[in-house]
Design a binder for these strands. Structure first.
Lengths: 232, 232
DNA sequence: GTATGCGTTAATGAATGCATTGTCAATGGC
DNA sequence: GCCATTGACAATGCATTCATTAACGCATAC
């Protein structure tokens, strides 16, 4: 599930500085709920945890703050930002738009047989996982499918943005993974999407992906409301 | 022209730390071409320039690197990233999609008379500037028009993204401002857009804005190519 | 004359130290 | 008894310091 996949625009091949390590590790700990939303953590504690001095932790915190993952509160430590239903709406609106654009572009410009194979293999994995009712495996494959799809669009900035925000809803997805019905319909969407892309039907691909995300958002917001979670 | 408008998601009301000053000032110097694209600047030089120590400059550089404005090269200093035609395509694709979404949302949800007045006043300013052939004034008003439009969408994350990338093409816009014909057509677009929003015609608003950005992108890329600029 | 290697120089990444400032608690006054 | 004010403490922001490492220049050898 994207182990802190260095999605930044600036991730070419730099030697791993402590700051980069800190950013990656913190992001990972946040998306996997090792650091709970709403909790505060002193920079010195985090530094000890990551076996480095306060400086790189501080710098990583500043960077993650600019991405909306945490808030650096002067004498209270680094606060892991919870996502409200409103935040979720904001993020899904962005993801919907940009991922749909990626789908459109892919269909318009065409994919290599290799790339189509990759996408379809993710779908098959999802179906296998579904058959075994292995939700975690399904989520992993779903994650890969969408990340690969966007990445194939070859817009590095767009990929970076989507990756950033995808990371942020990851937490909520993990939470709702076992509350939702098995995602059979979702997989039908995936098939239809790849077919549309393969046929070069750009408008159709865009529409399918948009609808797909809209459904996901509705379910997410509804589940969170139903279970009385005001934020995650 | 948005004097380093603190567009980050994290900009609520924090006391101005040196890091924030550094980010704002550097961004400002970059977008106004005080620091030329492609040039390198030692952190110590920048620190002296900004009257602070290296630490906050370093931290600001890391943040700006994650936003794609600069590159921190270990022993060569902070490099101001030039934008190639490809980069411009990437950025415009994102801006087109997200700004059109904002227009759609505004039209769907409706604007207050006050907000409509604000937008129209920007348009009037543009027309006044156009009459005097004052390109700088036109650009300023155009900038404000689009920023306000997006901000009225009340999606803070979307606003932040658009602001970030808008900053990045600012340089190219300044450069081409005197190479392009006077933007009469552009203003017609603006009027049509606000009318569509006022009438609540969401699809129309989205389409107009999309077309508006597409035209802008084409002109930009063409001008840059015609003048033999491979990057700005 | 050119290329390669070594040494010096200098710039960044990270650690540490210090001062500022907000928080929390205790004490005193009303 | 409660609220306010003051003082001590603690955590961050930034400066300073240190070490690492790459770049550049010069010398030497081919």
């Amino acid at each position: 599930m994207s182990l802190a996949g260095e999605s930044d625009l600036s991730s070419e091949e730099k030697p791993v500085s402590q700051v980069r390590r800190a950013v990656a590790l913190l992001r990972e700990m946040i998306t996997t709920n090792k650091l709970l939303p709403g909790s505060n953590h002193l920079e010195s504690e985090l530094a000890k945890m990551l076996r480095m001095s306060r400086t790189p932790v501080h710098e990583a915190a500043i960077l993650l703050e600019s991405q909306g993952l945490v808030e650096v509160v002067p004498r209270r430590g680094v606060r892991i930002l919870p996502l409200s239903a409103d935040d979720m709406e904001e993020i899904y609106a962005i993801l919907t738009e940009l991922e749909s654009l990626a789908a459109y572009t892919l269909a318009r410009d065409g994919l290599s047989p290799d790339q189509l194979r990759t996408l379809r293999s993710h779908i098959q994995e999802m179906e296998a996982a579904l058959a075994k009712e292995d939700r975690q495996a399904w989520a992993r494959a779903d994650d890969l499918f969408h990340r690969d799809l966007v990445a194939m669009g070859r817009n590095r900035r767009l990929t970076a943005i989507v990756s950033t925000y995808w990371d942020q809803v990851q937490r909520a997805r993990l939470l709702t993974l076992f509350m939702r019905p098995l995602p059979h319909a979702s997989n039908a969407d995936h098939r239809a999407l790849v077919d549309a892309i393969a046929e070069g039907d750009a408008e159709q691909a865009r529409a399918i992906h948009r609808e797909h995300r809209l459904k996901a958002k509705r379910m997410m917001v509804e589940l969170i409301a139903r279970h009385g979670l005001t934020a995650v």
